[in-house]
C-alpha cells in the first residue's frame, strides 16, 4: 500500500478521522476544565499553607479556635500535596473512576475532576514558591503601612507573585495537556485513544499514531511560543 492508500484507509474510510477530532475535542475540554479547577483549588491550598506559615506565631499567641482550625487545614493540605504529588496521575484517575466515582456514568467529568485535583497540587506549590520568593520586606512594608494580612497579600504581594510565576504556571498547563493522554485508561476517547481506536481497526499503527503525536506537538509548540512571548513581555516591564 502506498502513502495515499494508507491515508485513505486510516482517516477517510468510514469517516475514521472523526475518532481523531472527537478525541482532540475531549482532550481540550479535559485540559481546560482541569486547568481551571487546578488554578482555583491550587490557589486555595497555597493560601492556606502560606497563611499558616506567615501567621502561625500570631495565631498561636491569640490562642483559641483560629489556631486549631488553621493547623488542621494546613495539615490536610500537606497530606493532600503528599498524596497527589507522590502517586502517578493515571493511578489517581483509575481510583477516582473505579472506586470513588464507581457509580458515575460521566467518564469525562470524572477525568476532569481527577486531572484538576492532581494539577492543583502542582499549582499550589508553584504559588507557594512564588509567595515565598517575594522578599519578606515587601510584606513587612505593607503591614507597616497599616494593611492587614489579606490586604497586604492582595495589593502588594500577589501582583508580584503572578508576574513571577506566570511562566511556570503556563508550563504546568502544557504538561497537563500531555498528561491527559492517559484518559483512555478509564474509557474516554481522548486524542490518544482516538488514534489507538483507528489502529485497532485498520491494523496499521504508523499513520494514526504519528498523526496523534503531531497534533500534540503542534499544540505544545504553539503554547510554548505563547509562554515565551509572555515571559519576554514580563521581563521588559521589569526594568
Amino acid at each position: 500500500m502506498n502513502f495515499k492508500e494508507q491515508f485513505i484507509l486510516n482517516f477517510v474510510t468510514d469517516n475514521r478521522w472523526t475518532n481523531i477530532t472527537t478525541g482532540l475535542i475531549h482532550t481540550i475540554i479535559i485540559t481546560i476544565c482541569a486547568a481551571l479547577i487546578g488554578l482555583v483549588l491550587g490557589m486555595i491550598v497555597a493560601a492556606v499553607r502560606t497563611t499558616y506559615d506567615k501567621n502561625c506565631e500570631s495565631l498561636k499567641r491569640r490562642g483559641g479556635l483560629g489556631y486549631i482550625i488553621m493547623t488542621f487545614f494546613n495539615a490536610v493540605c500537606k497530606l493532600y500535596l503528599t498524596i497527589f504529588r507522590g502517586t502517578p496521575v493515571v493511578v489517581q484517575l483509575m481510583i477516582m473512576y473505579y472506586i470513588i466515582f464507581a457509580s458515575a456514568k460521566n467518564g469525562l467529568g470524572v477525568a476532569i475532576i481527577a486531572f484538576g485535583i492532581n494539577s492543583a497540587a502542582y499549582v499550589a506549590e508553584i504559588f507557594r514558591g512564588g509567595i515565598m520568593s517575594i522578599d519578606n520586606g515587601q510584606f513587612e512594608a505593607g503591614r507597616s503601612l497599616g494593611f492587614n494580612y489579606i490586604q497586604t497579600m492582595m495589593y502588594i504581594v500577589i501582583p508580584q507573585v503572578i508576574k513571577a510565576i506566570l511562566p511556570a504556571l503556563l508550563n504546568e498547563f502544557i504538561a497537563l495537556l500531555k498528561e491527559t493522554s492517559v484518559a483512555g485508561y478509564v474509557g474516554i476517547t481522548d486524542l490518544t485513544r482516538g488514534g489507538n481506536i483507528i489502529r485497532g481497526v485498520t491494523f496499521s499503527a504508523f499513520m494514526p499514531l504519528i498523526a496523534v503525536a503531531l497534533i500534540y506537538l503542534i499544540m505544545v509548540v504553539c503554547l510554548t511560543k505563547v509562554v515565551g512571548i509572555i515571559e519576554r513581555r514580563l521581563r521588559k516591564s521589569e526594568r
Binding site: Q138, A141, P159
Partner: peptide
C-alpha cells in the same frame, strides 16, 4: 492595623514596591 497607620516605618533596605 489601625495603630500601624499612625506608626510609619523606614527599613534598611527601603522595601519600595518594585512593580
Amino acid at each position: 492595623n489601625k495603630h500601624r497607620q499612625k506608626m510609619g516605618m523606614v527599613f534598611q533596605h527601603f522595601n519600595l514596591f518594585p512593580n
